[in-house]
Structure formats: structure tokens, C-alpha cells
Design a protein around this nucleic acid. Sequence first.
DNA 1: GTCAAACATTTTGTATACAAGAATTGATTT
DNA 2: AAATCAATTCTTGTATACAAAATGTTTGAC
Lengths: 218, 218
Amino acid sequence: METRRADSIATQIEEMIFAGGYSDGDRLDEVRLAEQFGVSRTPIREAFQRLSLTGLVELIPRRGTFVRQPGPVELLEMFEVMAELEAACGRFAAVRITDQAIENLRDANAKCQMAVDAGDADGYYNENERFHLIIYKQSGNAFLEQEAQRLHNRLKPFRRQQLRVRGRMSQSMAEHEAIVSALVNGDAETAANTLRGHVAVQGEKFQNLMAALRNAAE
Amino acid sequence: METRRADSIATQIEEMIFAGGYSDGDRLDEVRLAEQFGVSRTPIREAFQRLSLTGLVELIPRRGTFVRQPGPVELLEMFEVMAELEAACGRFAAVRITDQAIENLRDANAKCQMAVDAGDADGYYNENERFHLIIYKQSGNAFLEQEAQRLHNRLKPFRRQQLRVRGRMSQSMAEHEAIVSALVNGDAETAANTLRGHVAVQGEKFQNLMAALRNAAE
DNA sequence: GTCAAACATTTTGTATACAAGAATTGATTT
DNA sequence: AAATCAATTCTTGTATACAAAATGTTTGAC
């Protein structure tokens, strides 16, 4: 599927920012990026426009384009919203999920457990993501699914660090089981609340996130 | 505050689309718009990039830019998400709202009631909007506030028609009262549920929305 | 009359050119 | 030496130019 250039350039710059190549306030040099990508300034500028809407970048008129890494406050706010979006997905999924999807959730969970046993952080990460994406889709609301995926994606680099914490993976597994149960029972309220709690940043998770941010700032 | 051109152009095109000047699938002619705005194609194209991210417009490579008016399904999905976002705002606001904001909500409600009594649809509409914007802000989560406002804005043209329905305004008023009560009591769960129900499109509201869409399609 | 192929016309995507607003440097003054 | 202003250099924002793809039209065959 051939996609237009500005689109793919935006994605690539996005990845560069996510990868941690830039810190907050860094200016994105149009001509340097243009050379780097082997194109002219025009498609770079179009990409900037797209990135600005996601909040990843700030366009200051006549000044330039600057990367905007979320600070601690903004990050916590985004996790709060993520928790609510997941809760909403769970609420809808509880009454809309297909049998096949339940099977897929169980499969993802089983592979998650295997990854935990094997100490395979990457494997755990991937299956965990699959678990959540299934729930987004099973909300039966394509718009919600899209919004959830967008934010999920944006938070990816920050969530990654949380998994490193000892014991987190097995606790997370138990929560996954509870979520599947609620979905199987069609219990919308429980599904929503369990998912909210699962995603929310509270207690020790909060400390971990802050610590990770402090390290990243150095 | 001088804003860059592409920004203001995007906003203006957005308004043109909201105003109903275009229907689904219409192609946005770069050169025509450029002439219309008295600029070259470049800023128009940058504006298109911004609009595409909000989903208001679809960029088909080598084909052009087409307006994407939500169909019935997408619209219902968006209202579902709006209901969940408002519920989330209410949940947070219940434990974070300031005394001043409660005063402001009551004031908005009083003016709403006055508008209902006077049969002033526009007045009702404006105060009703103020009521909801206050709750977004009182979520104490700037990111959530922004997301809620964005979707609220997107749904504006469709919500407007629902108000026309007989009896809707007074029922809505009663719901507002219940929402304020929950917020005053700090009852997060009730605030969330009441707001969700208030915003959700169900029962007769569904029929009205469908009817409005059918009319718009003609 | 229908279909298809070749040609002409639009229209998009990108590069380049140019104008105007920032930033920077260096000279001049206090 | 610090501050200020002017001139220079960079950078952004927009217009224009051009190439390639898509669309539309004419022509010709069947």
C-alpha cells in the first residue's frame, strides 16, 4: 500500500521522537531533516503539521518546530485518560465480545504466562499489547478503538519502563485473568473497573514512573 | 496572538465543513480554495494535513482530499465515546471540583432554565455548553479536558438538532440538577453514571438523530 | 453503438525560489 | 567591560515551477 510521503515521514519522525532521540524543547531543523530524508522541505513541513495535532510537536510561528515531551503532570493525565478509555472498552466489550475473541484473549494470556516463566520481557510485552488491542476492538466501537490505540501508542515508551519492575508482571497476569472473567460473565461494571485499575498509575507504579522520568531527564 | 496561516486556514475550512457546506465524499479543490483564500496551494495543503488527523477529511494519495462526514454508525460511536469522556470528567470532577465552579454550574443551570422559560433555544444552547465545559475543566485533567472539548466540538452540529425536540430541554435540565448534586456530594460513581446517561444517545434520542441525518442527506 | 487506445488536460506531489521575520555578530558608544 | 544598535546571516512561510500520476476526451476499430 503506497502511502503519501508526508504520511510516512511523519511516522518516521514520530518514531525518532519516541525512540528518545530528542528531548523536550529540541528544535526540529527542517533543512537537516530534509537532507536526512533526501527530500525537500515541503513534505517535512507537511509532516510537522500532522505531528502538531497529536501534541508531539509544537509549531511556533516564525520560530520553528519543537518537540514536546510530556512532563510528569501531563503524563499522569494521559495515563488517567488511558485508564478511562480502557474502562470504556471493557464496559462495551463485556456485552459485545465474541467467543472467538475470548479464545484469543485466553491465548494471549497463556503466552503472556509463558513469557513470564521464561523471563522473556519482550515476549510478555508483545502478548500484553495483543491482549489490550483485542479488548479495544471488542468494544465494537471503531472510533473508540482508534482513540484507544492512538493513546496506547503514544504512551508506549513510558509504559515499557514500568514492566521492568520486579513482581509487576505476575500481578499484571492476575489482573488479566480477572478481566477475562468479567468479560466472559458479561459483567460490564466489573470489566470496566478492573481494566481501569489495571491501567491506572497509582501507588508504587507512580513512584516507578517518576523515577523513570528522572532517569530519562539526565 | 498572530497564528500561522495554515492553522487559521485549517480552522476556517473546518468551519465551512461544519457549517454543512459540503457533504460526504466531496472533493476539496486545492486551487479553488487557494484562490478563495487568496493564498497559494502550499498553506492549503498544510491545512489539509491537519484536518486529516481529526478525521474531518481523508487524504487519498494522488487522488485528492475528500470531506468525510460521519455516517450513522460512526456518529453513534462518537456519541458513545463522548458519553464515556463526560462520565470520566464527572468521575474526576466529583472529587476535585472547586466551590467556585459549583457556583458557576448553578449559575449556568439557572440561566439555562431562564432560556427554557423564554423559549430561547440559542440561549439554552450556549449555557448548556458552558455547563459541560465547566465539568471538563473541573476534571482537573487538562489532557482529558482538551480531548473532551475536541470531540464535543466535532459533535456540535449534530447535537444542535437534538435540542429541537419537544420536552427535551426540560428533561435535560432535570439531569443537570442531578449531576450538580452528585458533584456536590463528591459521589464520583453517580456523577459518572448520570453524565453518561445524559450524553448518551438512546431511546427516542436515537430516532431523532437518525431522522436529522436523513434530512441532512437530502 | 460500444469498447478501447492514444492523446490532451487536470491535478497532485515535490522541488526550488523568494520575501520577510528572527537570530547573530560586530562595531560603536558610554 | 557592558550595552546598544546596525548589518549580516539563518530560518521560516509562501509562491511558483515542474514532473508524474490520474482523469477526461477524441479517435478508431469492431
